[in-house]
């Protein structure tokens, strides 16, 4: 990043840290949603953006993470900080299974994407029938008493959840950045760009792809744990839905696939846009069915048509926040837009 980029990042960080001081409940809930999508978008980006593996079923990992942590809490009194390990393990197991099937038997591209959808759908239908987890009627975590914040059990006020979400985003950003500059990260990028050439350069394709799935599914499961304890209710029709899987990938697509800040910027564009539309519909009274989705869709098409590489790379260039390869005469100071 450039000096200006670092300054802006610090400023944004400070603003986000201070936001609960001024934001009301509603704004805070919108911001928490933004951060949640930024986080899971970042997690998805590890697979698609870094390694070129298109997952259209990331709701599977959200749902598994959410249900495992919630079940451990409700049925066994195990807190989320312990439960999240089991949640990540469950998601990693599912991801590894899908990965193993795909990468061992040469399932690639669109067919891999279809397989990820299939597994998420199987989970959605399956969880509808698990009575122990409430089935289709939903699974509920006892609602928090807002008087006391209990970080150990992740029970408490919206402000607590806001800061937890912010920490998740910051953590994921730091992790993604470190990975991208590691040996594994460069191998991921090589596999994304040209699998044959990567393999000829000594990269074990199976291991590289599997490791991307493991990291991505584990991170996504954490997003599920957060969701379970934030909303206190889980319905298979929502958490495992195809719509949720798409919502997860939109911020990264809009912001810029494969970039570090793309998913974050994308979430800050899309979620407020959705809220604004809801507000406009309420104010004007034009509540036609599907109007919100239509606006949303048009906005998306516009972004995909006019900024196909995402908003972040364009913004970063315009504002001089980061350099792309080749835009600097001094090679050592070249971090690119990733």
């Amino acid at each position: 990043m450039t000096g200006r980029g670092i300054l802006l990042l610090a400023l944004a960080g400070a603003l986000l840290l201070a936001a609960p001081l001024v934001a009301d409940r509603y704004v805070l809930s919108v911001l928490t949603t933004v951060l949640w999508f930024a986080y899971v978008g970042q997690a998805w980006n590890v697979m698609m953006g870094f390694s070129g593996l298109l997952s259209l079923g990331h709701a599977l990992y959200v749902g598994l993470g959410a249900y495992v942590a919630a079940a451990l809490f409700v049925h066994f009194g195990i807190g989320p900080w312990l439960g999240l390990w089991a949640a990540m393990l469950a998601a990693v197991a599912a991801g590894s299974f899908i990965g193993f099937l795909s990468f061992r038997f040469g399932v690639r591209g669109v067919h891999f994407a279809l397989l990820t959808i299939a597994f998420a759908e199987v989970a959605r239908i399956g969880f509808d029938h698990i009575g122990w987890l409430g089935g289709s009627a939903g699974f509920f975590i006892p609602v928090a008493e807002e008087a006391g914040n209990d970080l150990a059990n992740l029970r408490g006020s919206p402000v607590l959840f806001y800061y937890v979400a912010l920490a998740l985003v910051a953590g994921a950003l730091a992790l993604a950045r470190a990975l991208l500059h590691s040996r594994l990260g460069y191998q991921w990028l090589a596999v994304r760009e040209e699998p044959d050439a990567a393999e000829a350069s000594g990269v074990d394709l199976f291991r590289a792809r599997m490791s991307a799935v493991v990291v991505s599914s584990a991170l996504t499961a954490l997003g599920g744990v957060f969701q379970a304890f934030y909303f206190n209710n889980l319905f298979p029709e929502q958490v495992f839905s195809m719509g949720r899987s798409i919502e997860i990938i939109l911020p990264a697509i809009v912001g810029g696939i494969g970039t570090l800040f793309g998913p974050i910027l994308g979430a800050f564009i899309l979620t407020p846009l959705g809220e604004l539309l809801t507000y406009l519909i309420e104010v004007t009274g034009y509540d036609l069915p599907g109007l919100k989705q239509l606006f949303y869709g048009v906005a998306l098409v516009a972004i995909v048509v006019f900024r196909p590489e995402g908003v972040w790379p364009w913004l970063a260039r315009r504002l001089g926040l980061a350099r792309r390869p080749g835009e600097t005469a001094v090679p050592p100071n070249r971090e690119g837009t990733r």
């Binding site: 460069y186 990028l189 090589a190 040209e194 044959d196 990567a198 000594g202 990269v203």
Partner: peptide, 23 residues
Amino acid sequence: KPFGDLSVEENVLVGALARERSV
């Protein structure tokens, strides 16, 4: 088959990482 979106140096870096663990 260059790694198109990577820089020239990163392309060669991937090759070097075949025998070298330190980036």
